[in-house]
Amino acid sequence: MPEPLVARSALRAHVAPVVTASVEPGVTLRERSGLTLATVSALGGRDAELADAVRSAFGLELPTTPKRVAAGEAAFVWAGPGKWLATSTGAADFASLPAGVSDQSDGRTVLSVSGPLARETLATLIAVDLHPRAFAAGDVALTHAASIAVHLWRVDDEAAFELAVFRSYAATLWRWLVHAGAARNIDARLDG
């Protein structure tokens, strides 16, 4: 009998939890599990049609600059000219959009980095200025963290960031972040 396919975290087999005892964590690292992810690429000359479809299906204005827009379960993260990463905490249907849509739910891992020292921790790995003056809520950057390509966005005005990374790099990036947070009382845990 064939083994049923089960979605598994890219991290579970590779990382041990790091929990700082009895002190307030400076930075908290978690995996955003159970997300639906898809890359959405506008078809040649059909950008306006895609923007209309996203507006009517999700009530969102597709950003054309490095921004993230979110409403309810769904969000669209700018990923380059004419490209977006669509995310949903539910089971959103991105496949019906008039665009090149490729499911990435098992292809990328999304990490959440938050807490008062989150920016300081990320700054040890990322050269982009993450000060709220330069990188506000909803801002997006495509860059690298310790030479690993990352898709980074600021979730809100609090120090809360999310990073999407190719699945096979997730464990390495996790270890880099744990190392960077070691002197900042990091609390890094996989749920469940």
């Binding site: 600059t65 490095p66 380059g80 000219p81 050269a127 982009v128 950057a141 495509l142 860059t143 690298h144 030479s147």
Partner: peptide, 11 residues
Amino acid sequence: PHCGTRGLDEF
């Protein structure tokens, strides 16, 4: 022109 000024390491 899309992302802003970045270091040579990204190019």
